Simulated assay, not measured.
Amino acid sequence: MQVRHTRPFLKWAGGKYRLLDKLTPHLKGRKLIEPFVGSGAVFLNLNFERYLLGDINPDLINLYQCLKKERGQFIRYACSFFIPENNSRKHYLEFRQEFNNGLKGRRRAALFVYLNRHGFNGLCRYNKSGGYNVPFGSYEKPYFPEKEMLHFIKQAKHATFVCGDFVSLMNRSRRGDVVYCDPPYVPLSPTASFTSYAAQGFSYDQQVELAYRAKHLAERGVKVIISNHDNAITRKIYEDAKIESFPVRRSISCDGNKRGTAKELLAVYE
C-alpha cells in the first residue's frame, strides 16, 4: 500500500515530492538537517524530533519564519491577496514591482506566496540585480494552499529555519544527525556546459565541495544523503558514496509536453 504524502504549499521546480518513497528509507533519526530545504517536501513528510532547515534564498526563509510565528493570522493575511481582481497581469506586475522595491517582513512573505501561485509555472527566479522576474501565469483561478499551510505549521513546531549556505548548515551537524542535501543539479548531459548553471549560484566546484564535506561528516558519525542526476559527472563526484540509481519522469526540454525518463541518484555517505 502506497503511503499518501502531503504536498508543500509552494509550487517548486525540482521539488522532491515524487521521490519521497525512495528517500524516506534513508532518512531515520532524531534530527534532520536540510541545507537546501526548497519547498520543504521532505521535512513535511517525516517524523524527526527536530529539524534544522536552511536555504540561501532569504525570501523563502522569511516566509517560513513568518508562517511559523503568526500561524493562522498569516494564512488569513496571505489569503487576502487571492481575490479575483488580483488575478490579472496588471495587478501581478504591480505587486511584483512592490516586491522588488525593497519590501520587508510579513507583506513581502505574503506577496511571495501570491507570486508563487500566480506566476508562470511556479518558477522562483531572480535577475542579476536580485529582482524577481517571473512572468504572469494567466491561471483561471490560482489555488490558495490553506490546507497545506496548516500542515506546515504543525510540522514546523520542531523546526528552526536559517538563511545560509550549505557549509554553515552542515557545520552545525552532530553525531547521529541526518543531513539531506538537494542541491541545484548538474547538467543532465555529461557534455553540457556549466556556464548557465553556475550563473544560478552553484558551480561545479561547489558540487565537489559538498561531496567532500559529506564524506568527512560521515567519518564523524553523521549520515549524509545527496540527490542529483545520475551521469558521469556525479558518478565521479560521489565516488566515495554508496549509490542508489533509479529512473524518474521529468521534462527533458523547454517544451513541457515533451516528457521522458532520466536517471536520478542518491549518494549515501554513512
Rank of each mutant, 00 (worst) to 15 (best):
H91F: 11
A199G: 11
F95K: 09
V186S: 11
R235V: 00
D55V: 03
D177E: 06
R220V: 00
L63N: 03
V222T: 05
Y77F: 15
C254T: 15
V208Q: 14
A262Q: 02
A198W: 08
V162M: 12
T191K: 14
S189D: 14
A110P: 08
L27D: 05
N57Y: 00
R259W: 07
E239G: 12
N228I: 06
K223I: 02
H91D: 13
E148A: 04
Y212K: 15
A156S: 12
N47W: 11
E94M: 14
F99M: 06
G119D: 03
D240E: 15
G29M: 06
D230F: 09
R249S: 10
V179K: 03
L150H: 10
A214L: 00
Y180F: 12
K223A: 08
A109S: 09
L169G: 04
Q206I: 02
Y132L: 07
E146V: 02
G40P: 01
K22Q: 13
H91Y: 11
L265A: 07
D230N: 12
Q73V: 14
A218S: 15
L60M: 02
M1Y: 11
M149D: 05
K22Y: 11
R18G: 14
A41E: 04
I83C: 10
G38R: 03
V224P: 03
K68H: 04
E219G: 13
M149W: 03
N228W: 05
I237T: 01
V134L: 08
S227T: 09
K90L: 13
I252N: 10
L188F: 01
S227V: 02
G137N: 02
Y77Q: 06
L52V: 11
V186Y: 04
P84R: 11
R250I: 03
A159T: 04
V268Q: 08
A110M: 07
G176I: 03
S129E: 15
L266T: 01
R125T: 01
D55F: 04
F112V: 11
M170T: 00
A109P: 03
R7S: 12
T261E: 13
G38S: 07
C163A: 15
Q206A: 08
E85Q: 13
S173L: 00
Y269H: 04
I225G: 04
V162S: 13
P142C: 06
A199H: 12
A192G: 08
K147W: 11
A211D: 05
G260D: 11
R125E: 06
H151V: 05
F81P: 01
K242S: 15
D59E: 10
L123A: 10
L103R: 02
L150W: 09
S203C: 07
Y204V: 07
E140P: 10
F144D: 01
E85W: 12
R18E: 14
Y204E: 14
N101G: 10
P190Q: 11
Y143C: 07
R125S: 07
S227R: 03
Y64S: 07
Y51P: 00
G164Y: 05
I75Q: 04
R18W: 15
T191D: 14
A198G: 09
E70H: 12
A109I: 04
K223F: 01
L169V: 11
L103F: 09
K90T: 15
R250L: 01
E85N: 10
R71A: 14
F95Q: 06
L217M: 03
E146K: 09
I75S: 06
S129L: 13
K90D: 15
T195C: 10
K242L: 12
D205P: 07
A13H: 10
